[in-house]
């Protein structure tokens, strides 16, 4: 039994993609700016150096007990390997968001594919900020954070001199996501023919 107020997000990708930074900015926006309860954990040590990288957010109106994800409501996968590894505990009505340029085999049709890295490259001129583009989309589609707070937290957390570039990237992600209509997606990550079996 899970309390309804618990909402879990997992950011995943590979080391160097800025996965953890994106999660920390979102946590800061929710916790310090929106004033909700949030708990953020991340892969650490050898796991975090190269290879897969992940960060998790638990968001709640009430106190948060177990600090890590139990069943994920939203999974962001920025690489195929991360998608394959971390899809397993996505809720049936959870949402998968992937970088369309990096994740070719999407395990469910209840997924949003957006070209985060391509947007970063073409619109901002730096692939480096693909994480912030993705964060914009996650922030928008999760409905768990005010976009104003997301912007404020971003400014407070990114290195000096990179604020404008990161802000643009975040906005580009929000814009891309705002064109998505979630109601057109299947209601479950399990496809209809599987449910019928």
């Amino acid at each position: 039994m899970k309390s309804r107020s618990r909402y879990e997000i997992r950011f995943s990708g590979s080391g160097g993609q800025g996965i953890i930074t994106a999660a920390v900015v979102m946590a800061d926006a929710i916790g310090a700016f929106d004033g909700k309860n949030v708990c953020q954990t991340q892969s650490y040590g050898p796991e975090a150096r190269g290879g897969k990288s992940k960060a998790e957010l638990v968001i709640s109106d009430g106190p948060i007990d177990y600090p890590k994800a139990l069943q994920v409501d939203l999974l962001l996968a920025m690489t195929q390997a991360a998608c394959d590894a971390y899809f397993f505990d996505l809720k049936t009505d959870g949402l998968l968001i992937v970088d369309s340029g990096l994740v070719e085999q999407v395990p469910t049709s209840r997924a949003v594919s957006l070209p985060f890295t391509q947007i970063a490259r073409q619109q901002i001129g730096r692939e480096l900020v693909a994480n912030m583009v993705a964060l914009g989309a996650v922030g928008y589609l999760s409905g768990q954070v005010s976009l104003e707070s997301l912007h404020a937290a971003l400014l407070a957390r990114v290195p000096k001199g990179t604020e404008e570039m990161n802000r643009k990237a975040l906005q580009a992600g929000i814009d891309a996501a705002s064109k998505i209509d979630l109601s057109t997606l299947p209601r479950s990550i399990i496809s209809d023919w599987e449910t019928e079996l």
Binding site: I30, G31, G35, N37, C39, T41, I64, P67
Partner: peptide, 10 residues
Amino acid sequence: DEVVAHTRES
């Protein structure tokens, strides 16, 4: 412990 040390919370 390592979990408490590296968990971020509001």
